[in-house]
């Protein structure tokens, strides 16, 4: 990403716009906004080279609150807008702010294909498992049976899991964080910002109005140590208040084991975010509460040429082999004749 020269050091506040933030009090979006600004400051991001693009939904108001370039587009279409920006100006840092409805329902197709192409943009999916801006209908990530305004008898839709979808779409960077753990969120966002190619981050975000406490299991003081496991590259998956529990592979399936006795750390599953094959990352993305602690952190981070690099590469190859385009050559392509 493009960074400031050492002489001008912007603070997190400098990345915020003069607009009054209009999310509901207590919304998880505030934390995400704060961490994004902090990360930009940490990395010395150049304001004029930074673009925030969004679709529709609560999360999509994000660009208005940033003192950078921004585009609040239409429902589900932010990845398309971002791709056009990136292919026109590959040097820009482009962020897409989306939610579970915007990104996975109406914009599901665009999300898949943008990830597949490895366009160099950072996608933050604010997952609150509900439709907030339309006032409380179930979303593609709402649990089965969820009672909402549009499903008074409970939803009969099976939910999907954002990270499994991203991994299925061949994502090169996949991570998860939770709004309340600001330090870890900052770390994950910084990793996402530094990744070359599409970064996909799912953020568990609490909607205080329509789906309050949806992630209480993962954020509550009493439960979080038992219900989440932090991923660290090259380290075993250990969790629990006493840090005495781990995840072990039993054949192709993960299982929870207690350390001690004849079970050692070496027996546990060691995280490897750089594995070429995404099977491990996928397996981790299938671990759900209450059967398993839910992994937080970087699931997958691999290098692959970006879409914009390859598009621009073809342009420069064509210039190299054919020379810069001349209109005379364009028009003379094919048979010509002269009328006297």
């Amino acid at each position: 990403m493009s960074t400031q020269s050492a002489t001008i050091q912007l603070t997190a506040k400098d990345y915020g716009s003069n607009q009054e933030v209009r999310w509901c009090p207590g919304c998880g979006d505030y934390s995400i906004l704060a961490q994004v600004k902090k990360v930009l400051a940490n990395l010395g991001a150049i304001r004029e080279n930074t673009v925030f693009v969004s679709g529709i939904g609560c999360s999509s108001r994000f660009p208005y609150y940033m003192n950078t370039y921004g585009f609040h587009s239409i429902h589900g279409r932010a990845p398309g807008v971002a791709t056009g920006i990136k292919l026109t100006r590959p040097e820009l840092d482009v962020w897409v702010m989306t939610g579970d409805g915007d990104g996975l329902s109406i914009g599901g197709n665009h999300l898949l294909h943008t990830i597949r192409r490895n366009v160099g943009i950072k996608i933050l999916l604010f997952n609150n498992r509900i439709y907030g801006l339309t006032k409380g209908q179930y979303s593609p990530t709402s649990p089965f049976g969820k009672k909402t305004k549009s499903t008074p008898m409970g939803s009969v839709d099976y939910p999907l899991h954002p990270l499994s979808v991203a991994i299925g779409a061949e994502a090169t960077f996949v991570a998860r964080a939770i709004d309340v753990n600001t330090k870890h969120l900052e770390y994950v966002l910084e990793r996402a910002a530094k990744h070359k190619g599409t970064s996909f981050v799912e953020i568990y975000q609490n909607c205080t109005i329509f789906n309050d406490l949806a992630f209480e299991y993962a954020s509550g003081k009493e439960t979080k140590d038992e219900t989440t496991v932090y991923l660290e590259h090259g380290k075993p998956l250990i969790f629990g208040k006493e840090r005495n529990k781990g995840i072990r592979l039993h054949g192709m399936d993960p299982e929870i084991v207690t350390l001690g006795g004849n079970i050692k750390e070496d027996d546990l599953l060691f995280h490897d975010e750089k594995q070429a094959e995404p099977s491990l990352a996928y397996l981790l993305s299938r671990m759900h509460y209450p059967d398993f602690p839910e992994p937080l952190g970087v699931f997958r981070c691999v290098e692959r040429p970006t879409y914009e690099e390859m598009v621009m590469g073809q342009v420069s190859d064509a210039v190299k082999t054919k020379g810069p385009g001349r209109l005379e050559d364009l028009y003379d392509d094919g048979e010509t004749w002269v009328v006297n």
Partner: peptide, 15 residues
């Protein structure tokens, strides 16, 4: 749809 919105993005970026 993506074809159209990519064009909107490209126009914003100056192409």
């Amino acid at each position: 749809i993506a074809a159209m919105t990519s064009v909107v993005g490209a126009a914003f970026a100056g192409a």
